[in-house]
Design a protein around this nucleic acid. Structure first.
Lengths: 150, 150
DNA sequence: CCATTGTATGAGTGTGTGCTTATATAGATC
DNA sequence: GATCTATATAAGCACACACTCATACAATGG
């Protein structure tokens, strides 16, 4: 399973977000994620397994608890892959965002026929709304990126 | 479809890699990717559609050709998400890598009870080998990250 | 106008993956 | 040692998605 496949699942992304703040027991993680996504305990456990098996998390036992921590190695891989695109938004138009960049590129390449009609709106491509699950009550501010159905 | 889902597919990642160097026609992209992954033209076209539909690529028509370009917006989103983990490998042990970081964290947190038996192995989670497809002949050096079966 | 090239879409199929319920294991507590 | 909590695994099912082949559409050239 590739790093991006692992990150493809919103539950796993959320788990990693929670782990970003430090070590957490499977139970704590489960509580949050079950609440937010409405999945069962085994469901969460399986996601944790995927994180383990793919090197995104390490575990240590403390009594009957399993304490999970982030292992950043695969995330760093992702970061490396992304490096080649970073110039697209780091290149002097940092603040103006990619919308501008696109418009500019298009203008540069063609006669200028294209309608600049929609040039003025946000850069969020698909307006990340709330998650579509059952118990949509967020208890601890999941990142916007995490939201979005499977 | 979430950004990470789009990037979950190795063919799409490869297409984006090719587009990183600049505009490319669907045909050029197809040639490379069909060779490397052994998939059909419609297959490639469908992947391009996914990239389009999710804002990773923009197209312009030139005659009968379709010229694709990267739209970095969703990639930037991914970059933003990753930001919270960057400290894990930017934090002074840049060169030494995460292996050290993990060892250090473990040492810091436990009394040393747990078996340190498997503590010494590599950080590559699944040794990125050649892609498992049919026509495995690489013509233009796909990034290691791209490899890995679906 | 017909053929040819370049590309997209539609329909149908198989497989992987994410879920569920049920159960196993292991440490804590009485 | 029985029971309770914490977590993992097993088995089974469903659905999404990445393929395939066939076909449509659009521009270009004879």
């Amino acid at each position: 399973m590739h790093a991006f496949d692992v990150l493809g699942d919103p539950v796993r992304r959320r788990l990693l977000e929670l782990l970003a703040d430090g070590e957490r027991s499977a139970g704590e993680l489960g509580a949050v994620v079950q609440e937010e996504f409405g999945i069962s305990q085994p469901g969460v456990s399986q996601h944790l397994r995927v994180l383990r098996d793919n090197g995104f998390a390490t575990v240590r036992a403390e009594g009957t608890r399993r304490l999970y921590s982030v292992d950043p190695a695969p995330l760093r891989e992702v970061d490396v892959w992304l490096e080649r695109y970073r110039r697209f938004w780091t290149q002097r138009l940092d603040a103006l965002g990619t919308e501008l960049a696109r418009g500019k590129r298009e203008r540069r390449m063609r006669g200028g026929t294209d309608s600049p009609a929609d040039a003025g709106h946000a850069d969020a491509p698909d307006t990340p709304e709330t998650t579509g699950r059952t118990g949509g009550r967020t208890g601890a501010a999941p990142s916007e990126e995490t939201a979005g159905g499977r």
